[in-house]
Amino acid sequence: MHIEQWIEGAPPGAVYALVGLIIGLESLGIPLPGELALLAAGVVASKGTVNPALVALCAVAGAVIGDSIGYSIGRKGGKPLFDKLGRKFPRHFGPDHLATAEQAFHKWGMWAVFFGRFIALLRIFAGPLAGALRMPYWKFLIANVLGGVIWAGGTTFAVYYVGKTVEKYMQGFSYVALALAVVAGAISGLVIKRRAARTLAAPEASGGVEQQAQPRVTAGE
């Protein structure tokens, strides 16, 4: 699936819709390359084809709405929902991935939703798992909105400004400029991801996955 080609070749109105839809579906719990969609849209915006503010707005809306829908689904389906998904889609929802995500929630609570925006694994788990663990919705919503704004909006504008700067100095090398913009955006995202991953890492040597608290108690803390 070449998401970046779809976005770069789509008319302006479709770019906004595609970004919002892809980010929304990923946030809901469907494993799609949302980060790649943001990078591609930021590059397109740097070329003047679309408005970066509208791209960021659609991305943030998709992130917040998708996560909220995922929260509702997880709250209704509970932990058995993840057991079913793990059997059908072990690559994305296998027990190891679920254990890692649940451990992050056990340690950080609502802020696992915030930091999860910057980590692909947690991004698809955040909404449904928060609902399954009965995290109070107001806590979830705060972290959801903050994470969506910083991740989706920040990534879009970072790639946009890098693309504009590169294009200014390399007007005769448009493809090189686009490539450099994507690489710069990817490096920025990688730095944020690593910091978020270090923050979410559970340092307890004796804790492990086996000592996680009961879901109802954990999420509400």
Rank of each mutant, 00 (worst) to 15 (best):
E4G: 11
E4R: 06
Q5H: 13
Q5V: 14
Q5I: 12
W6L: 15
W6I: 02
W6E: 14
W6S: 14
W6K: 13
I7G: 05
E8I: 11
E8C: 00
E8M: 14
E8D: 08
G9V: 00
G9D: 09
G9E: 10
G9Q: 14
G9M: 01
A10N: 05
P11A: 08
P11I: 05
P11S: 12
P12C: 12
P12T: 11
G13T: 10
G13N: 13
A14H: 04
A14E: 11
A14K: 11
A14G: 00
A14D: 00
A14F: 09
A14P: 00
V15K: 09
Y16K: 11
Y16Q: 10
Y16S: 12
Y16A: 11
Y16H: 09
Y16F: 13
A17L: 15
A17Y: 00
A17C: 03
A17F: 12
A17H: 01
A17N: 01
A17W: 07
L18S: 09
V19M: 07
V19P: 08
V19E: 05
V19K: 08
G20P: 04
G20I: 06
G20A: 15
G20H: 02
G20Q: 03
L21W: 02
L21E: 04
L21Q: 04
L21G: 14
L21P: 05
L21I: 14
L21S: 15
I22G: 06
I22V: 15
I22W: 01
I22R: 06
I23G: 08
I23H: 02
I23V: 15
G24K: 02
G24D: 05
G24V: 02
G24Q: 04
L25G: 02
L25H: 04
L25A: 13
E26A: 08
E26Q: 13
S27N: 14
S27E: 00
S27W: 00
L28V: 09
L28F: 15
L28W: 01
G29S: 10
G29Q: 09
G29F: 01
I30T: 06
I30L: 15
I30Y: 01
I30R: 05
I30H: 04
P31M: 05
P31V: 07
L32C: 08
P33K: 03
P33G: 05
P33I: 05
G34M: 12
G34W: 06
G34Q: 12
E35D: 14
E35C: 01
E35A: 13
E35Y: 03
E35I: 03
E35H: 07
L36N: 12
L36R: 03
L36T: 15
L36H: 01
L36E: 12
A37F: 13
A37G: 14
L38A: 10
L38D: 08
L38N: 06
L38V: 11
L38S: 09
L39V: 15
L39P: 01
L39T: 11
L39E: 00
L39K: 00
L39M: 13
A40Y: 03
A40I: 05
A40V: 07
A40G: 09
A40N: 09
A41K: 03
A41F: 07
A41H: 04
G42L: 02
G42D: 02
V43K: 10
V44K: 08
V44P: 11
A45G: 10
A45R: 06
S46E: 08
S46N: 10
S46I: 05
S46W: 02
K47Y: 03
G48N: 02
G48D: 03
G48E: 03
G48Y: 00
T49V: 15
T49Q: 13
T49F: 01
T49S: 13
